[in-house]
Simulated scan of single mutants.
Amino acid sequence: MRLWKQVAATTLAWGLAAASALAQALPGPVVNTAWLAANLDKVQVLDLRGSAKSFTTDPEFDEVKGKKVVDEVGGHIAGSRLMEFKTIRVEREINGNKVKYMVPERAVFEKMVQDAGIDGDKPIVIVPVGLSLSDVNDGMRLYWQFKLYGEDKVAMLDGGMAAWLQEGRPYVKDALVAKVGNWKSAADRTAQLFADSTDVAAIVEKKSAQLIDGRELPQFHGLMKRDYVYAYGHIDTAKPLSPDTTYKKDGSAIKLLSANTYRGVLQAQGIDPAAPSVVYCNSGAQSSLPWFILSEVLGNQSAKQFDGSLHQWTLEKRPLVGAVSLN
């Protein structure tokens, strides 16, 4: 009888542990507003914005063709923690060059996350502003940094705060209360997810992977460039993935496409969704959505991001090709 009770107790403990793990499970790398609303008590909401000011102000709405849309995001989901996008990337010295907009070193990022009040016991849902593609890329960039440092219980809110507000879901304007969390980096996946300029140069020489340029076509073709990129054109052998083919608009909210649609979009632009790939852009933000599409939506585990992107590449005076004459 004692043995039976012991087995029963053990079975019950296993069952409770499994139920607890299941309760903490995310449905995937992307969640929608309905799922988040139903599971707010099971996750940590991490709001990512360009400025903290709107965290405590009312949103502004407009009406387009009889539908309420968000003109300016304001307020936040109750219980949200906050990070400002400008704080999550840093300047690092690489081979004698000061390279901007890089992922922080592991210990630095860990402290950033802790200072934002994030703990290690619940999944994290990143909520970008969601009004522009750059908002989405900002969120994807933070997601990539979490994955780089070993966090698997993380997801993106499709449509961001714009979708939440557009649907009339509740928001609050409480001031953020300072809190230090206990989140820890579980691993360093630099070898798996991060590419540097030496890796990219080897790919150009050996054609060992496909390079994907996530910038707008005028930049790819060298008709224009950002001021922190010091040459025109693109890296040799790179294929462009036009940003305007990577999302849809629902009212004012930027949302993702289906996996099947993404597969077709990539193939239509000459990109193999399953091939080893390195994505880049100007500074490593705009390429975060292409990386997310390949790695997280389509399951390509050989997708990496060239973090320094063309800022680092041209700082090192490495060549670009394909610039169209402006004369």
Rank of each mutant, 00 (worst) to 15 (best):
Y262H: 02
T56A: 11
D196V: 06
V45W: 04
L298K: 04
G159K: 01
Y143P: 00
Q267D: 02
Y149E: 11
L157A: 06
N327G: 14
F220H: 09
E205D: 12
A253L: 04
G139E: 07
T11H: 01
Q44D: 08
A162K: 06
A209K: 09
E167C: 06
E167L: 13
A37L: 14
L298T: 10
F61L: 09
S258W: 07
A21W: 13
W291A: 00
Q114G: 06
L82P: 10
D47Y: 14
Q24R: 15
F292K: 00
A323C: 09
R106I: 14
Q24S: 14
P123D: 07
P27E: 11
N327Q: 13
A8V: 09
M112Q: 15
N95D: 14
V7S: 01
G299R: 03
Q166W: 00
A17K: 07
T10F: 13
K98L: 11
V136L: 12
S242M: 05
K67N: 05
W164I: 05
D71H: 14
G66Y: 01
R263W: 02
T11F: 08
P243D: 05
E296S: 13
Q305N: 14
K53I: 08
Q269G: 00
V103E: 11
L289K: 09
V125A: 03
L148I: 03
V73G: 07
